[in-house]
């Protein structure tokens, strides 16, 4: 069976799961539906011959699920009032997004056909990577040798995001400081 049929099946499951995640009222169910989408992405990476990415995506999906469940699944959070669904806004958004989809159809016809990529830079990496870096895993050769400067930037972004998260969580609000100073 060609790989394209498998991919179409997985993508349909992912689209249904993402719509379910957005429409279900219960927070725990929608987080689990997001887990279905992420594991579908991991499975498609496996079909598309990217085992590196499949491993990393699988682990990160589990980690993201733990963070989201730990943060949002609390009893009092479920009692948020039912926001009345504005039907007009939804219909207008769907129409506009549908127009966007139709207008972007010519772009997809100009893209290279699925299964025949443009391999201009990558041919060089494939043929010279093992000799020039000595690494058997060519993805590692690219991220840590040819494009290690990109990886340095990525580590910097991760560092900034983590420092931002820690400072957001640890900062104390003004009112709390006032209360404690009054006491």
């Amino acid at each position: 069976m060609p790989i394209e049929i498998w991919l179409i099946f997985i993508l349909c499951v992912m689209i249904i799961a993402s719509i379910a995640a957005l429409e279900i009222k219960d927070i725990l169910s929608s987080i689990i539906a997001i887990g279905v989408v992420g594991l579908g992405v991991s499975l498609s990476f496996l079909f598309l011959q990217a085992p590196d990415l499949a491993v990393v995506q699988f682990l990160f999906e589990i980690f993201a699920l733990i963070i989201l469940v730990r943060a949002f699944v609390k009893k009092e959070f479920h009692q948020h009032e039912e926001t009345k669904n504005n039907l007009l806004i939804s219909i207008v958004t769907i129409v506009v997004l549908g127009l966007l989809f139709l207008l972007s159809l010519p772009v997809f016809q100009n893209l290279p056909v699925f299964g025949q990529p443009l391999m201009t830079v990558s041919e060089y990496y494939l043929f010279h990577g093992a000799l020039q870096t000595g690494a058997a895993n060519l993805v590692a050769a690219i991220i840590l040798d040819y494009r290690a400067y990109d990886t340095l930037g990525e580590v910097t972004v991760l560092f900034t995001a983590i420092i931002g998260t820690l400072s957001i969580l640890k900062i104390r609000s003004k009112e709390k400081n006032r209360e404690t100073s009054n006491e």
Partner: peptide, 13 residues
């Protein structure tokens, strides 16, 4: 292998 290397860093961010 080039898009795989790009996406690997993107997932972490």
């Amino acid at each position: 292998p080039l898009p795989q290397a790009l996406v690997l860093t993107s997932i972490v961010i």
